[in-house]
Design a protein around this nucleic acid. Structure first.
Length: 804
DNA sequence: AGCACGCCGACT
DNA sequence: GTCGGCGTGCTC
């Protein structure tokens, strides 16, 4: 009786999105478990493919019609995906219309993703001259797309004639870092003897022996080399002579370079105390309750998180804390590490693939009890969760923009249910979805209405820029804001200036004919980058030199338009020549660690003004910042998106909270062309409740989320006609299954109709209850797969963050 | 995805 | 006549 394993193979297509049965070779019976990675032969050529064991069937009756192939090798001694995450991947695949294999790979660190290589080997029958020509003296030839097409053709022909064989290799790219540990292997007397028999010239060896005589402990080779200024060859000599032993030991790459100061729990105010006890009670009673923790900036949410997490740890459980990537700053991580020390693992995009893998392994082995991380950390393999925190739960970056298009908040809620533990959603400006659920008592609402130390909210001034324009020359700075900046400068206080990212691009336009330089691949104008002196496309990365002559009319009156951070910086230095400015944008923060360095410089008072995009609004806490200026509050408002007001309100509220955190009162200037817009007016008074009520009414009237569910479909193709036709067909198909209550928007061309030479068309379905929608969408995906050879791509986004 | 099978044009 | 172009279908 053969044992059968069901395997999810690493072939991400609709047709192969199902477990395949394999025979378990007798050597692996008893060893193979679900969640292990295996190498299996797949397809006609039996090429080797990585797979995940989905299920083991010990007493299967083999179907006589199907001849099963056998599992090749096992890649893991123990499952790397536990039962919970297997279940989660299945749920994810169904709710996001993604392949199970894609979900499994998303949950694991990238280092565990298989690398495939193909090798050609000559047979005995292969003529010697051809062998020499192709292989030289090598036994094998790496067969990949770096080979010239002629060689590929030749290999293909030889393979057909069975004159060569093809070997498929599945490579595990996860590398465990090892360090040599050095230990004296002789006693002091023997070492001293060796020392005295050395020649005078053997200085290095003498140093080494002196060290070994004085120190009997184990030390790592790099440390020793550094300390004694030795090279590895001296140590090898030492090993050969039997003075010492060297042993490779597994180590973790340490992503924390800095030590942290241990902190103690702070005293809670009554509101915080109430919140902490509610969460702790849920942890203690193993209830999967969801809390919405609402508190303005500075109200002490983080302390609530920390104490709720501490409680989970005291119960022998673990804690997971999600933070938006952009606010996963050393400040935040430091606070968590300050409380929990070595038990903390951190997962974020700044880590190298090796560091990430090591942090993940620490978690998997149960060596970390607290995990802090961005979106994908929600898959951290913690097995005894006692509490899950989602900080800034309204943040759009929790939603992944490619497959699987999951929302980390939804995954957190799923895991909370699985572990019977509370999930805390924290925000000063909750998403309407979450706030609405709290209204219906699906979530428990916890309020922190006061700032700790009873700091006053900053004084907010809204500046009408249309009015400004009438009185002054065109400038990014209103007179009020400029004056306020000067005051701070005189007082030695710091200021934050935020430039709304969308619409800030500076483009080049010809004054004679109005020509705007466009990207040849995308329907978007190119952005001017002064640092590299080039025009760049922000969507596909296309780059070209700045034109001096108009490509259209050959006129010489080419001018720069728009407002970029660089231009603002320039104007700022002209207006305030003494001010020291730090600019933070994609250009200055691209390099690893640059973000942190710039923030540190600002924190150390090496600059007076921090100028940047959205990234300066989140998670920063500089006590000497007493002025915040928003240069263009409403670029997002103009966008045809149902979340535009929500985003604007959240951003303004958040950035305003950055002013005046210590004893000094804060001041905020919001420059806008829509001074009467409710999102801006209500951000001025930080009145979330009123904003919520107002916005809910609008959503209700417009049949938008959270009153309706939404699914967004996008079709793209290099041929515009094909994308459009596919969409029309899809609409026709959907109309046959949808109820009359469902609302179809579109199809319309994408907001940027062409990106990277592909044309985009999209469609949004708003609905309340559509029993047949899911199956219809899966069917559409299946059909699209057949056409994908022609280049057509269909993407389905459930609960999209925007309709654009 | 990747590989094999199968049917039509320009070559030894 | 065949070699090889890439259209179609399948992978336990």
């Amino acid at each position: 009786m053969t044992q059968i394993a069901e395997v999810i193979v690493d072939v991400p297509t609709m047709q192969t999105n199902t477990p395949y049965s394999y025979e378990i070779p007798s050597a692996l019976v008893d060893q193979l478990q679900p969640g292990m990675r295996v190498v299996v032969p797949f397809g006609n050529g039996s090429r080797k493919v990585q797979g995940f064991v989905w299920q083991v069937k010990p007493d299967a009756k083999p179907d006589p019609d199907v001849i099963l192939k056998a599992i090749d090798t096992v890649m893991d001694p123990a499952p790397i995906v536990n039962a919970e995450l297997m279940q989660l991947s299945d749920w994810l695949a169904h709710t996001t219309y993604a392949f199970t294999i894609t979900c499994l790979q998303t949950m694991l660190p990238n280092a565990l993703k298989a690398k495939y290589q193909k090798w050609a080997r000559p047979t005995e029958q292969l003529a010697n001259d051809i062998r020499q020509q192709l292989f030289g003296n090598q036994p094998e030839l790496l067969w990949d797309d770096s080979l010239p097409t002629d060689t590929v053709k030749q290999l293909l022909a030889l393979n057909r004639q069975h004159l060569i064989t093809v070997r498929y290799e599945v490579r595990n790219q996860s590398k465990v870092k090892k360090v040599m540990m050095i230990k004296p292997a002789m006693n002091v007397a023997e070492l001293t003897a060796a020392r005295s028999s050395l020649r005078k010239t053997a200085v290095k060896q003498a140093t080494l022996l002196d060290y070994l005589i004085a120190h009997r402990d184990t030390i790592s080779q790099p440390d020793l080399e550094h300390q004694l200024k030795l090279s590895s060859s001296s140590l090898k000599t030492g090993e050969v002579n039997g003075w010492l032993t060297r042993k490779a030991v597994e180590v973790y790459r340490d992503p924390f370079q800095t030590a942290v100061v241990k902190t103690k729990p702070l005293k809670l105010n009554p509101d915080q105390d109430k919140a902490v006890s509610a969460i702790c009670s849920a942890t203690d009673h193993e209830q999967s309750e969801t809390f919405l923790l609402e508190g303005v900036t500075g109200s002490g949410k983080t302390e609530v998180y920390l104490q709720a997490m501490a409680n989970a740890l005291s119960q022998g459980k673990q804690a997971l804390m999600l933070v938006p990537e952009i606010s996963l700053t050393p400040q935040i991580v430091g606070r968590v590490r300050g409380r929990f020390g070595k038990q903390v693992a951190v997962l974020h995009s700044g880590l190298s693939s090796g560091e990430r893998f090591d942090e993940w392994r620490r978690i998997q082995r149960g060596e970390a009890q607290v995990v802090v991380g961005a979106r994908s950390a929600v898959f951290a393999p913690l097995t005894h969760l006692g509490v899950i925190i989602v900080d800034e739960e309204h943040e759009g970056s929790y939603k992944q923009e490619d497959n699987p298009r999951y929302h980390a908040r939804d995954v957190a809620l799923w895991r909370g249910r699985y572990h019977h533990c509370p999930v805390v959603l924290g925000s000063a400006t909750p998403s309407l979805e979450s706030r609405a659920r709290a209204e219906k008592n699906v979530y428990t609402r916890l309020l922190l209405p006061n700032r700790v130390n009873h700091q006053a909210l900053p004084q907010v001034t809204i500046v009408d820029m249309t009015e400004e324009l009438r009185h002054h020359k065109e400038s990014n700075f209103s007179s009020g804001l400029l004056q306020a900046l000067q005051t701070r400068l005189a007082r030695g206080e710091q200021s934050l200036l935020m430039l709304n990212r969308r619409g800030y691009s500076s483009f080049v336009m010809c004054r004679d004919c109005g020509f705007v330089l466009q990207c040849p691949n995308c329907d978007i104008s190119l952005t001017l980058h002064m640092d590299t002196k080039t025009m760049k496309c922000h969507y596909c990365g296309h780059e070209e030199p700045i034109p001096h002559v108009c490509p259209n009319c050959h006129g010489r009156h080419i001018r720069y338009y728009g407002t970029g951070t660089q231009k603002v910086e320039q104007e700022l230095t002209e207006l305030l020549p003494t001010a020291r400015v730090i600019r933070m944008d994609v250009d200055t923060t691209r390099r690893k660690g640059a973000h942190e360095r710039l923030l540190k410089r600002f924190g150390d008072h090496q600059a007076d003004i921090l100028l940047g995009t959205q990234m300066i609004a989140k998670g920063l806490d500089f006590p000497d910042v007493t002025l915040v200026g928003v240069l263009n509050a409403d670029t997002a408002l103009g966008l045809p998106d149902f979340r535009a007001s929500e985003r604007t309100f959240q951003l303004l509220t958040q950035v305003s909270g950055r002013a005046g955190r210590a004893s000094k009162p804060g001041q905020v200037f919001i420059q806008t062309y829509n001074p009467d817009h409710y999102a801006i007016q209500l951000a001025k008074t930080q009145n979330y409740e009123q904003f919520f009520g107002r916005e809910m009414q609008l959503r209700h009237r417009g049949n938008y989320p959270p009153y309706y569910f939404a699914v967004k479909l996008t079709a793209s193709d290099v041929e515009e006609r094909k994308a459009a036709e596919a969409m029309v067909k899809i609409v026709r198909q959907l109309k046959t299954v949808l109820s009359p209550q469902a609302i179809i928007l579109g199809p319309t061309p994408g907001a940027i109709a062409r990106v990277n030479k592909r044309y985009y068309y999209q469609l949004v379905i708003k609905y309340k209850r559509e029993s047949q929608l899911d199956s219809a969408l899966f069917k559409i995906l299946g059909q699209a797969q057949k056409q994908s050879r022609g280049g057509l791509q269909i993407a389905i986004d459930r609960n999209p963050m925007s309709f654009m």
